[in-house]
Simulated scan of single mutants.
Amino acid sequence: MASSCFTGVSAPVFSSENYAAWAVKMKAYLRAFDLWDVVEIDKQPNPLPENPTLNQIKHHSEEVAKRYKALSCIHSAVSEMMFAKIMACETAKEAWDKLRLEFHGSDKSKQMQIFNLKREFALLRMKDGESIKDYIDRLMKIMNQLTLLGEVISKNKVAEQVLVSLLEKFEAKISSLEDSKDISTMTISELSNSLQAVELRQAFRDGVIISEGAFVANQTTKMHAGSSSNKQQFGKKGKEKKESFDRRQKGKKEGVKNLVIWRKFARTKVKQISSKLKLLKSYRRRKSNLKSNCLQQAAMKLKSILKPGYWTVDAPTI
């Protein structure tokens, strides 16, 4: 019996595009309501026996109603244009087969689709500048189309196809995976995660090299070493590259020259500042000595003032 929690679920609508995906969704929808047997094999209800009981009559009525429920589900799961194609069908199986034949093709056309997808899968190669995620998505799209057509590709074959179709920069990682793990047992997600980690490290390393200018310097050095051959091969383009390299080299030399001048200037400034500091220290020492001498003289004068009899005053005569 169908579960009551599915009563509010609406059927997927087919509008002449992506029939394979709609068929998978619709098949699951009909199974949720226990109606797929009616569509798949056009199951007929058993005839009532003589003198049937109330339960037998009720069960027979439910089986008869299933046929119309299945046809109603298919009617509600197609657009108006698609409904015009199947409105004359009397049973759910007849409507389903008509849609499958028109949009999914016959067995012969189905085999041709499988053949074309297998060929596309075998010739699939990773493009320059394409990320691992985008490449795996393209691969999985072909696999899903084959699965909808009833052709299942083994995980081992998928892993082999990924490894043989990657770019050259992943060769080191492929060798390490072959030595450390059994590739035939690896899932697509595990393989994708390992390759994405390598891709992320390479992108980070390339970004650091470019920011430091080492990669540019290396490339310009190689270009300068073969400037004569480049000039003959590429003509004006090689000449422009050589001029660009000469300008950068000239800038580097000027930068080194400016650095030497700046160091000389810094040394003289340091000497001047150190001499001023020495003068300041000597001045502070002299000032402190002068201050201490003044304090000593004031103390001696105070002692002389406080001697006995210094403040004695003679009595007036009468």
Rank of each mutant, 00 (worst) to 15 (best):
G235E: 02
D97R: 05
Q219A: 12
A32V: 01
N293P: 01
K307G: 03
L123M: 06
A203Q: 07
N46P: 09
M143H: 11
K291N: 09
C89V: 00
H104T: 03
V78I: 07
H224L: 09
K291P: 05
K237E: 06
D42E: 12
K231N: 08
L139F: 14
S175F: 04
K43H: 04
A70Q: 02
S3D: 10
A217V: 03
D97Y: 01
L35A: 00
E130F: 00
A214C: 05
N193W: 02
T312F: 11
N46T: 07
E240P: 01
G105S: 02
L177P: 03
K287R: 08
S189A: 05
P47S: 10
N293Q: 11
L123I: 02
I74T: 02
S189K: 11
V152R: 15
K157P: 06
K141S: 14
R263F: 13
L200A: 14
S131N: 04
A84H: 14
R205V: 04
M140D: 10
K257Q: 06
A197G: 08
V313T: 11
F234D: 03
A197F: 03
A2W: 06
A315M: 07
S175P: 02
V313Q: 08
L71R: 09
K231L: 11
L149F: 03
D246V: 00
N116Y: 05
S192V: 02
K242L: 09
E240Y: 04
K252E: 12
R205Q: 08
E50V: 10
K257Y: 04
T317K: 12
K69H: 07
D37Y: 05
Y68L: 07
F204L: 06
S106L: 04
C89N: 02
E168A: 10
E151A: 06
L149Y: 08
Y68M: 07
S154Q: 14
V13M: 14
E190D: 15
R31M: 09
I86H: 01
L302D: 13
R201P: 01
I153M: 11
V78W: 10
V260C: 08
Y283K: 04
N289D: 02
E254W: 13
P316Q: 14
L54Q: 13
M81T: 13
K287I: 09
V158E: 06
K303E: 13
K173W: 02
R286T: 07
A225N: 12
V164I: 13
R263Y: 13
S106H: 01
Q196E: 15
D206M: 03
K237Y: 04
F204C: 05
K66A: 04
M87W: 11
N258C: 07
L54V: 10
S228G: 14
F265K: 15
F6A: 10
N193F: 06
A217W: 00
T91Y: 00
V38L: 03
E90C: 00
F170L: 10
Q56G: 03
V162K: 01
K181W: 04
K85P: 00
S165P: 07
N193A: 15
H59F: 07
